[in-house]
């Protein structure tokens, strides 16, 4: 049997992420509920939610501009572009993968987050604005962390391509146990906890508006736009998981050829790995308490510490 054409695989990457994201989110929610002794929602519940919301009418607050409605659409477009750049299914770079490097992916993610925040400030809702301003405040600390992580990647591989790092990590255990790699992975995990609205940053299922950051921003959106924002959040989560897993922590189980079965297996492997990671994070969620808001800087400072040391050990040699 012949292999799939490369553009098809690339489209497959986007599809895997786009459709896998609600599945992963639903599975994590179920596991979380079980850990807390509840029965919890069905695994496919996010699909039903999205379906329901797409069928509803949408309202915009008076006085809000065009950006309020455009932001969810552009944001999800950004989120769906990132899988073009990162290794989702294959170990080798696909045709469009080199049109942006790891910084490019970072830019797309921050741009989306920026648009959502701006859309939130378009409304008059104090909670949405609170969430937006907080997200940007703490983002000022977490984004340098990401930069440091990228520097680490650059120093290890001499490129800024995500594929190259995955390749390097696969090349042997020496690359796995080196402190720079482990520290960068740890820092990235902490940033992901922050970005996906997990404890100890916030209770992502909670209803306490004063403690919200990420979940407060789409308060004024409704109907299909709300669906897009929710879906976008799920996609962002899976994209970040993919970056952590397929580049840093576990770049194994991806297709090295173009055979359809290999590619399909890689999609399954990604979802499986994401579920394992999700369960781990749900476990963390259960084990820790939410930090008070002003303690979040400490959390971010800890991530920064890891990232700084990753860079430092590299430049000292022996990292």
């Amino acid at each position: 049997m012949t292999g799939l054409p490369l553009p098809a695989i690339q489209a497959g990457q986007v599809l895997t992420v786009g459709l896998g994201a609600p599945l992963v989110s639903g599975a994590i929610a179920t596991v979380e509920a079980r850990l807390q002794g509840r029965r919890g929602p069905r695994v496919l519940q996010p699909f039903y939610d999205l379906h329901k919301m797409f069928g509803k009418e949408s309202l915009a607050p008076t006085g809000s501009g065009v950006l309020f409605l455009a932001a969810p659409v552009i944001a999800i477009a950004c989120y769906l572009s990132v899988p073009l750049l990162i290794p989702v299914l294959t170990t080798y770079p696909l045709p469009l993968a080199t049109m942006g490097d790891i910084l490019g992916g970072g830019f797309l993610l921050s741009f989306a987050s920026f648009l959502v925040a701006v859309a939130a400030t378009e409304t008059g809702d104090p909670y949405a604005q609170l969430g937006a301003s907080r997200a940007k405040t703490f983002g000022a600390i977490t984004e340098p962390v990401l930069l440091m992580v990228f520097f680490t990647v650059a120093a290890i591989t001499a490129t800024d391509l995500p594929y190259a790092l995955g390749e390097t990590v696969r090349s042997g255990p020496a690359q796995v146990v080196r402190p720079a790699h482990l520290l960068a992975t740890g820092a990235l995990l902490m940033v992901i906890l922050y970005e996906t609205a997990r404890i100890p940053i916030e209770t992502h299922t909670g209803t306490n508006e004063l403690g919200m950051i990420e979940t407060a921003r789409p308060f004024e959106h409704s109907g299909p736009y709300l669906a897009l924002l929710h879906w976008g959040s799920m996609i962002k989560q899976l994209v970040l998981f993919t970056i952590l897993l397929n580049i840093f922590a576990a770049p194994w189980g991806m297709a090295s050829g173009t055979h359809p079965l290999a590619v399909a297996g890689a999609a399954g492997a990604l979802i499986g790995k994401s579920l394992v990671l999700g369960v781990l994070i749900a476990g963390l969620d259960n084990a820790f308490a939410k930090l008070r808001l002003f303690k979040i800087t400490e959390f971010a400072a800890a991530a920064f510490l890891l990232a700084i040391f990753a860079v430092c050990t590299l430049f000292l040699g022996g990292g």
Partner: peptide, 26 residues
């Protein structure tokens, strides 16, 4: 364009060295 990893600016330490540095980092 595609680096192979081992030719990077910072050579990887051996497994033993990496482990030892990691423990020291802890």
């Amino acid at each position: 364009m595609h680096a192979t990893g081992t030719t990077g600016v910072v050579m990887a330490p051996s497994v033993f060295e990496g482990t030892a540095s990691t423990v020291a980092m802890i």
